[in-house]
């Protein structure tokens, strides 16, 4: 596998960023993943994924404003880079290609 291949959580995080738009942060990302997948993803996994995605150049982050609700601490906002968008597109195409003709097999498979 190439180093830029996306893990499950990384994939989810990138798609959540697409849905939420730029300048979102980890709490809404976590909520979005839970809401859409119905899976309880660990917050630590999201942080690690964001860290890795930033290292790969797929997302960018910046420190935002501090609020009293956060104990006077700043938020770290994330947004997708063009490379991130391309990576997502490629991953989706790869999945579509792989799934071509296989949907029916899944439906017929015994439970």
């Amino acid at each position: 596998m190439p180093r830029t291949a996306l893990g499950d959580v990384e994939h989810f995080v990138l798609i959540a960023l697409l849905h939420l738009g730029d300048d979102t942060y980890s709490v809404p990302i976590l909520a979005e993943i839970s809401r859409r997948t119905g899976r309880e993803v660990a917050q630590a996994a999201v942080y690690i994924a964001l860290r890795r995605l930033e290292e790969k150049g797929l997302v960018l982050s910046r420190l935002g404003e501090a609020t009293a609700l956060r104990g006077g601490r700043a938020k770290r906002h994330f947004k997708l880079t063009p490379a991130g968008r391309k990576q997502l597109r490629d991953a989706r195409e790869a999945f579509v290609q792989m799934w071509a003709g296989a949907e029916n097999l899944v439906k017929k498979a015994p439970r």
Binding site: Y25, S26, V27, Q43, Y47, R51, L63, A66, T67, L69, R70, G71, R73, A74, K75, R76
Partner: peptide, 15 residues
């Protein structure tokens, strides 16, 4: 570099 933002996230969820 991520201490403040993570602690802030968790405090926000705490509230």
């Amino acid at each position: 570099d991520e201490r403040a933002s993570v602690l802030g996230d968790v405090e926000e969820q705490f509230h």
